[in-house]
Design a binder for these strands. Structure first.
Length: 585
RNA sequence: GCCCUCUUAGCUCAGGGGAUAGAGCGUCUGCCUCCGGAGCAGAAGGUCGUAGGUUCGAAUCCUACAGAGGGCGCCA
């Protein structure tokens, strides 16, 4: 077994070695089993149980007809032999767990690896898989609400995590620029425009009443004067629709960019309604595929998709009796287009209010010949609190805190961090006052503070002003040389607070790759906020118990290297969340 | 009525079938001549919604029930 502390590979290697050991015991007639069971290898929660633990003996007990601890003795003896030089101890504990304690040079080697790998630490090999993540996709008729902000943070972070795991990821925003909401939007702007021109108009009953509508109308008035007031309504509204639409789209792009979210593709729904060279629209072509596959039928003048063939509750209408298409029909064409573009996996992030739509969309994707290649993530909503009161998020009333307001109020880092801190299927109760607070109550500052503190130490070690941001931390990092004999000083006196703090930090650092791998597999950025807080905590403990900039050059370089490795991993974890890692606060 | 999600400490929430269920906040007690106290150490606080089941082992998987939220249109 190579002395490679990378968590993922250690687990895999250890699993293989254990399985080999059991194989040998079976071949030698010591274990009455047909074949080795599937064993789990995990990091014990309690550090006194060692670095790794396996349930191999427990899962073998029944089939072998033996007492778990007797089997554990056999396996442990084999492991001691096979892991000589890598494992310091192999022990049996509890009902029959086998605990492996790694040799200390294997443990400390993670520092060297992190500092060599830098940002690549914990990254997966390229998978060759092409993944599309579609998210936000807010209607371009007004500002984003805070729920959109959460989904923006979520989609972007998932994209970053998947990229780190080795996938090729594209971020896409679907622009619903073809529906009746666009007409309502246009007539709303038109009404405000006429008001501004002093005309007596009745505001559309279902119109958008937000103040931004009047702002857009004012912009048009400023730029083009009141010449549209006497034009036919249809002509005026057609013109205003494009003006207002462009303004809102630019606004959306600006706000998203301001929080570090940039899309690769803005896909316009309108293109699905345009006729191509074959004289057909994308919607017609998409439906044509379903027809050829035999999933469409006519009933009461409408065209239906037999989605029940794929587990949906009922069949769905694609073309209404009046000849117009449903929104679902456009969505089918849109998804057909995604797969035509060659994605191996499409991830859609929708708000919780759309979850009833998942089955039919999955059914459509399967009917198009891509079963299992769509994954819909349902993002729960955000409850915004202000002075203990729930703030409403209605576009109609116009009384709402927009996502842009929230960003201005708390900043992009705090907003993203708070959105990502909860698991996706849990609603977020967003407390504006807490997110603004620059105190220990605020977890994002706790983590960022640890990073800034490390940068300060590095500057101190280099003899620079600890708060001077112009000092190049990367250069200082590169100047720190800690060979394996120096690193051996870390955790050299087990049982002392200093060594325990060092070992705790080393253990936490070593766990990063598997946390990222898990976050990628589960599309769960919140695993990284939890990890970042644990790593920051481990670092603060280390800092409290271990003076870094000490006289002894070997110990000093070892602790500096450990602090530096912590800096690298903290920055990486925050980076995958899209949150900044400031060098000074 | 049917479907989805949720229910873990006073509050907000983590928890990949494993060992004594964790963190932050809040409450209580300590730690600054010393690298950033935006920090650290400790105490108290739990029938993991209820009842069954599967398993050597269940907060975790299955079923039923209770409670909370959301979704169920030839709307978008």
């Amino acid at each position: 077994m190579p002395a490679d502390p990378g968590a993922v590979t250690v687990r895999e290697t250890l699993t293989a070695v254990i399985t080999e050991t059991i194989h040998a015991l079976i071949a030698g007639g010591q274990l009455p089993l047909a074949e080795p069971p599937a064993v789990h290898v995990e990091r014990p929660r309690d550090p006194s149980h060692g670095d790794w633990s396996t349930n191999a003996a427990l899962v073998s007990a029944k089939a072998a007809g033996m007492v778990p601890r007797d089997i554990a003795e056999l396996i442990a003896a084999g492991l001691r032999q096979r892991l000589a030089g890598v494992a310091e101890a192999v022990e049996i504990a509890g009902p029959g767990f086998i605990n492996v304690r790694l040799a200390r040079d294997v443990v400390t080697d993670v520092v060297t690896r992190i500092r060599e790998d830098g940002e690549r630490f914990g990254a997966g090999e390229p998978t060759g898989r092409r993944v599309q993540v579609e998210f936000v996709s807010a209607n371009p008729v007004g500002p984003m609400h805070v729920g959109h902000g959460r989904w923006a943070a979520l989609g972007d972070s998932i994209a970053r995590i998947l990229e780190h795991a080795g996938d090729q990821v594209q971020r896409e925003f679907y622009v619903n620029d073809a529906g009746v909401q666009m007409d309502i939007f246009a007539s709303s702007v038109s009404a405000r425009y006429l008001e501004l021109c002093g005309r007596d108009v009745e505001f559309p009953e279902d119109g958008y009443r937000g103040a931004y509508i009047a702002d857009i109308a004012q912009e048009i008035l400023d730029a083009e004067g009141d010449r549209w007031a006497d034009m036919p309504a249809t002509e005026r509204e057609a013109h205003f629709k494009e003006q207002a639409y462009t303004a809102v789209l630019e606004h959306l792009k600006r706000v998203l960019h301001g929080m570090g979210v940039d899309f690769d593709v803005w896909f316009s729904e309108r293109t699905l309604h345009e006729r191509g060279n074959d004289g057909a629209t994308a919607i017609e072509r998409g439906l044509g595929r379903l027809r050829e596959a035999g999933y469409l039928y006519e009933h009461e003048g409408a065209l239906w998709f037999r989605s029940t063939d794929f587990g949906d509750d009922k069949d769905r209408v694609l073309k209404k009796a009046d000849g117009s298409y449903t929104y679902f029909a456009a969505d089918i064409a849109y998804h057909a287009d995604k797969y035509d573009r060659g994605f191996d996996l499409v991830i859609d992030i929708w708000g919780a209010d759309h979850h009833g739509y998942v089955k039919r969309m999955e059914a459509a994707v399967a009917a198009l010949g891509h079963p299992g290649k769509l994954e819909v993530i349902i993002g729960q909503l955000v409850n915004l609190f202000s002075n203990g009161e729930v703030v409403r998020m209605s576009k109609r009333t116009g009384e709402m805190v927009t996502f842009e307001d929230l960003l201005d109020e708390v900043g992009a880092d705090a907003a993203r961090y708070f959105f990502l801190r909860r698991s996706t299927d849990q609603p977020v109760d967003f407390d504006i006052a807490l997110a603004k607070e620059r105190s220990a109550d605020n977890p994002v500052y706790y983590v960022q503070y640890a990073h800034a503190r490390i940068c300060s130490i590095l500057r101190k070690a280099a003899g620079a002003d600890t708060a001077d941001e112009s000092v190049d931390v990367a250069a200082i990092s590169a100047s720190i040389a800690a060979d394996s004999s120096a690193l051996a000083l870390l955790g050299a006196e087990p049982g002392t607070p200093a060594s325990e703090a060092e070992l705790g930090l080393l253990r936490k650092l070593a766990g990063f790759p598997e946390v990222v791998a898990l976050a990628a597999r589960q599309r769960a950025p919140h695993k990284l906020t939890t990890y970042a807080e644990e790593l920051a905590s481990a670092f603060h403990q280390f800092y409290t118990h271990c003076h870094v900039v000490v006289e002894d050059p070997a110990l000093r370089s070892a602790r500096l290297a450990l602090a530096d490795a912590s800096r690298v991993v903290l920055a990486r974890a925050l980076g995958l969340l899209g949150v900044g890692a400031p060098q000074r606060m």
